[in-house]
Each structure stands twice: as C-alpha cells, then as structure tokens.
C-alpha cells in the first residue's frame, strides 16, 4: 500500500497519547501563594467552620478545566428564624482563590446553587456556609484536572 504522507512531517500543534486540557485553560496554575487563607479568614472573621451540612457536587475528574460544573447545597430549613445567609466558594490551585459567593435568604426556599468554574490544575474546592446565627459549616472536595487519558 502506498502511503501518501511524508514520514517526517511534524505536527506542530497538538497532541499526545490522549492529551487534553491544560494547554487551553484560561488560567495559569497558582504560582507562589494562593490567597485562600486570607479570603476564608475574611469571610469567617477568623471563626473555624464545622465540617458538615454543606454538600459540594463536583466531578471527580474535570472534563474541561475551563468549565467545571459545580453545585453547592446546604442543609437548612430556610425559615425566617433559621437560614443560610451566604456560601463562599474558594479553590486553592488557581492564581487567586475566589470563585463565587452566593447570597440566600428565607425566600430562597432551598439553599442550593449551581454554576460552572475554571480550575487551572488539580486542586481542592471548598464551600463555606454562613448561617444566620453566625455559625459556619464547610466541606472540601478535590477535582482532578487531567492532561490525558488512554482509557478503553
């Protein structure tokens, strides 16, 4: 069989075994110190959050670091007496830790929000909920941002 290609033709842009991802992420990875501790400290006023009540639904492995689906929800009756005020989302591997802050109230009914976020590399995503009584709850999940896969 005749092969109609130059065997030394070099592909300039592109590929690996199954390389994806990182080349195209809108962020660089955190170089030096990410400001996560300062941002959390400012949000909680230095109070240590209790683990629990907060659920963070993120993929174990991101399909695309530029748009990683993220849902946060907090257990709460969401009544005038007992509700979630705010939820802070931070990530420790981006150049800056801030991702989003969601503001809820009794009229929200259910403390849940979903958006899509940028993750420059494998890192921890943390959600911290501030309750109307001034207490804080949190959870953390690792999202792997991979460069390749050869599955199958």
């Amino acid at each position: 069989m005749k092969l109609n290609f130059d065997r030394r033709q070099v592909l300039v842009l592109g590929a690996g075994c199954a390389l994806t991802g990182l080349v195209g992420v809108d962020f660089a990875s955190a170089q030096g110190k990410n400001d996560i501790n300062e941002v959390i400290g400012k949000f909680t006023g230095g109070k240590a959050p209790t683990m629990g009540r907060v659920k963070l639904d993120v993929p174990e492995i991101a399909e695309n670091g530029n748009t990683v689906p993220m849902t946060v929800s907090v257990e709460s009756p969401m009544t005038a007496q007992n509700y979630v005020q705010e939820v802070l989302i931070v990530a420790d591997g981006n150049p800056r830790s801030g991702v989003a802050t969601f503001h809820f109230g009794p009229s929200t009914g259910i403390a849940e929000a979903n958006t899509r976020i940028r993750l420059a590399s494998t890192q921890n995503v943390t959600a911290i909920a501030k309750m109307n009584d001034g207490s804080f709850f949190s959870t953390t999940k690792e999202v792997k941002v991979t460069i390749g896969g050869c599955g199958g």
Binding site: R96, A100, I117
Partner: peptide, 11 residues
C-alpha cells in the same frame, strides 16, 4: 430572592 458575586474563576 437570590444573588451571587462572581470572581474571574467563573467560566
């Protein structure tokens, strides 16, 4: 009923 602050890490 709901509001959010976005940082550059929102897609």
């Amino acid at each position: 009923v709901f509001s959010a602050d976005f940082e550059p890490a929102v897609s």
